[in-house]
């Protein structure tokens, strides 16, 4: 098995704790800057030492705090792509790859470097120093360098990868990948498993769709990109009618019957900005419609973000916004399907 369980205290205010096993595919660690993603990867790679715990890679012990096992980075069988491409600036891309393959005998080294250059289409840039090569070539070279020792686990630190590059990696490397990402979309596209990390703790783990759609805690909801978080009281619980009525300061919403709750319970309710639907004044009546006062609109590349008093944030496409922008008074539909109730 491949498993990670460790604790590392960095300062009085921040410590990292993790305990999870890695599947064969891509595991994405998703969280904001400062959540501990980079530290976690460095602890696995052996570039930092945990205070206690144990790291297993395919049943081999890489680190064991009690048994005092702490393999050096090069003996761990991990490839590491760092966040900023850390290619040696005074060497060409080819020399960087040769440096990374230094522990192999000469012929083997030349073969590995030639294969890496071919596979990651670096032949044009191989003779250039990093400063003269393009950003894309540098990134491909960083990946090629991480894979040159045929690692058993690839660690990727939010290096600006895209789906195409991931496919190139996959064609060359079949092992598990542990990837730190700030971008939920990339994680969603390539990961088999997603772990939300915040403040040095993994708050939720699972299939990306499940983690994104069913956040278990408020922290998980925030990390999963739910922009609207409100507190509510359960006013009605009706099992027969499959209905729960949630009271907020100033309005009320209905959702499906919530088992395991009592009337009067305080709960958190979250909804994505894209699920909130601003309505035309003349639209037919519907459940879960609340009046709202528009505070400001923020234009984005593909959408418009509307901020209402409350605060309630809605995000809609540019064409939707164009059809609504003449409105004087606003009401918002909060569809029950988009609402998530968190105990």
């Amino acid at each position: 098995m491949t498993g990670i369980r460790f604790r590392k205290r960095v300062s009085a205010a921040f410590s990292l704790e993790a305990d999870f096993s890695l599947g064969a595919g891509v595991t994405a660690l998703v969280g904001p800057a400062g959540a501990g993603k980079t530290l976690l990867l460095e602890l696995v790679a052996g570039l930092a030492t945990p205070d206690e715990g144990r790291i297993l890679l395919n049943d081999a012990i890489l680190f064991d705090g009690q048994a005092r096992v702490d393999l050096p980075p090069a003996e761990r069988g991990c490839g590491y792509v760092s966040q900023a491409d850390s290619l040696l600036p005074h060497r060409t891309l080819r020399q960087n790859l040769e440096f990374a393959a230094q522990r192999f005998a000469r012929l083997d080294r030349h073969r590995r470097v030639a294969e890496a250059i071919e596979h990651f289409t670096l032949s044009d840039a191989a003779g250039l120093r990093p400063a003269d090569a393009g950003a894309s070539a540098r990134l491909r070279c960083s990946i090629a360098r991480a894979l040159i020792g045929a690692p058993e686990l690839l660690l990727v630190d939010d290096a600006g990868l895209d789906v195409d590059l991931f496919e190139a990696i996959r064609a060359h490397f079949r092992g598990p990948i542990l990837m730190a990402a700030r971008d939920l979309d990339l994680a969603c596209a390539v990961a088999a498993e997603m772990a939300l990390i915040g403040g040095g703790r993994i708050v939720q783990r699972g299939a990306p769709r499940q983690v994104l759609d069913q956040p278990a805690t408020l922290d998980a909801a925030r990390l999963a990109g739910y922009q609207n978080v409100w507190q509510a009281t359960i006013a009605t619980l009706d099992r027969a009618a499959n209905l729960t009525r949630l009271e907020f300061p100033g309005f009320a919403l209905s959702v499906e019957y919530l088992p395991g709750h009592l009337r009067g319970d305080r709960v958190s309710v979250v909804i994505r900005a894209a699920a909130v639907r601003p309505r035309r004044a003349d639209a037919p009546a519907a459940p879960n419609v609340v009046p709202a006062e528009l505070v400001r609109t923020v234009e984005r590349t593909q959408s418009v973000r509307m901020e209402f008093a409350g605060p309630i944030v809605a995000e809609l496409s540019i064409s939707e916004f164009a059809s609504l922008r003449e409105q004087k008074t606003w009401s918002l539909e909060l569809p029950a399907a988009g609402l998530r109730v968190i105990p």
Partner: peptide, 18 residues
């Protein structure tokens, strides 16, 4: 010195002297 460069060299198995 950029610590990333030193880390990359350590990943490659370079000794302190190297």
């Amino acid at each position: 010195l950029d610590p990333g460069l030193v880390k990359a060299a350590r990943m490659a198995g370079a000794s302190d002297w190297r």
